[in-house]
């Protein structure tokens, strides 16, 4: 396939699926919470996605007079851009990848670090105390959880000997990395939820405490950008877990590779939503404690043991 076509397919696919996920999430939550969810507009309520999008587009594009205008507008763009950029390195199936960077994993980490700026800048530029508190929490949370996220997937990189996601998936032909790297998988998943600040790690937003946290002042399409950014972020983390630990597109031949990839990805998206339906939110300092006192030592241990075994095997 021509690279341009792939770019268009990936971008179009993402921007189509992300709003669709809003419907998926609302319906799934409804199922788990003994209620109906959106079921009026169109078949199965699917047109609610369209209605939501239209509503967001037609809302007044309002910037609070006390906000820092330029930064306020820039912040929601950052989240969408960085998350979309990360998809550049995701191999959906053999051949369907925008660029097979040889530093793919590092590129992903760099981009998700950049994403933290959107929270900090958005919260700061809003000039609202709730936003500020949310931004502070968000910054601390994302920066700390990036550390474990990076460390947790180093085991996979060590085994493969490459930062390229294509190589990492290929290296799982015999065995998915979830088995030798189970600890890494768990830590990466937790850190991934924290990166996307979804419940139980939605501390920057924390509805019952901070109203909407860092994006309290946002409305219309600028809020929509944060919203879509969050859902693309969920997809990104699900894609990364799939590639790094669940063998990406690999699977029995009766289904095409891209379908295997999608199935695995959607299973994780479902898990994300289930977590949201079931868990309460820890306190900010408890989250930090959990990260630095439990996840960090564990991920270092995982890295050291993996490295030790590899060295042992080589010698």
């Amino acid at each position: 396939m021509s690279p341009l076509l792939i770019v268009i397919c990936v971008l179009g696919g993402l921007l189509l699926i992300a709003p669709g996920l809003i419907w998926v999430e609302r319906r799934l939550l409804a199922v788990w919470q003994d209620r109906y969810g959106p079921n009026r507009a169109g078949p199965l309520g699917l047109l609610v996605v369209l209605a939501d999008t239209l509503k967001l587009f037609f809302k007044e594009d309002w910037i609070p007079p006390f906000a820092d205008r330029k930064v306020f507008v820039l912040a929601p763009a950052i989240v969408v851009i960085t998350v979309l950029m990360s998809f550049v390195i995701v191999p959906f199936s053999p051949g369907i990848i925008v660029v097979d960077l040889n530093i793919g994993v590092l590129f992903f980490l760099a981009m998700s670090s950049m994403g933290a700026y959107s929270i900090i800048l958005g919260g700061w530029a809003s000039n609202n105390k709730y936003s500020l508190l949310g931004a502070m929490r968000g910054a601390a949370q994302m920066i700390s959880y990036e550390v474990f996220m990076g460390l947790s997937l180093m085991g996979v990189v060590l085994i493969t000997g490459s930062f390229s996601l294509h190589d990492i998936v290929e290296a799982q032909r015999n065995m998915w990395f979830i088995i030798p790297q189970f600890l890494g998988f768990i830590i990466f998943l937790i850190a991934g939820i924290a990166e996307t600040h979804r419940l139980p790690f939605d501390i920057p937003e924390a509805e019952s405490e901070l109203i909407a946290g860092f994006h309290s002042e946002y409305s219309g399409m600028k809020f929509g950008m944060f919203f879509v950014g969050e859902y693309i972020g969920i997809m990104l983390i699900s894609c990364m877990v799939t590639c790094l630990f669940l063998g990406g597109w690999l699977g029995p031949a009766f289904l095409p590779p891209i379908v295997w990839f999608a199935l695995k990805m959607f299973a994780f998206i479902g898990l994300f939503i289930l977590l949201r339906a079931s868990l309460p939110r820890p306190r900010y300092d408890q989250l930090m404690e959990f990260g630095w006192k439990i996840l960090l030592p564990l991920s270092i241990l995982n890295l050291v043991v993996t490295a030790g075994i590899i060295l042992w095997n080589e010698s």
């Binding site: 939550l29 788990w32 919470q33 209620r35 939605d202 019952s208 949201r276 079931s278 868990l279 309460p280």
Partner: peptide, 9 residues
């Protein structure tokens, strides 16, 4: 406390 579902039940 942040738990979304119990209130519905």
């Amino acid at each position: 406390i942040g738990q979304l579902s119990p209130v519905f039940y």
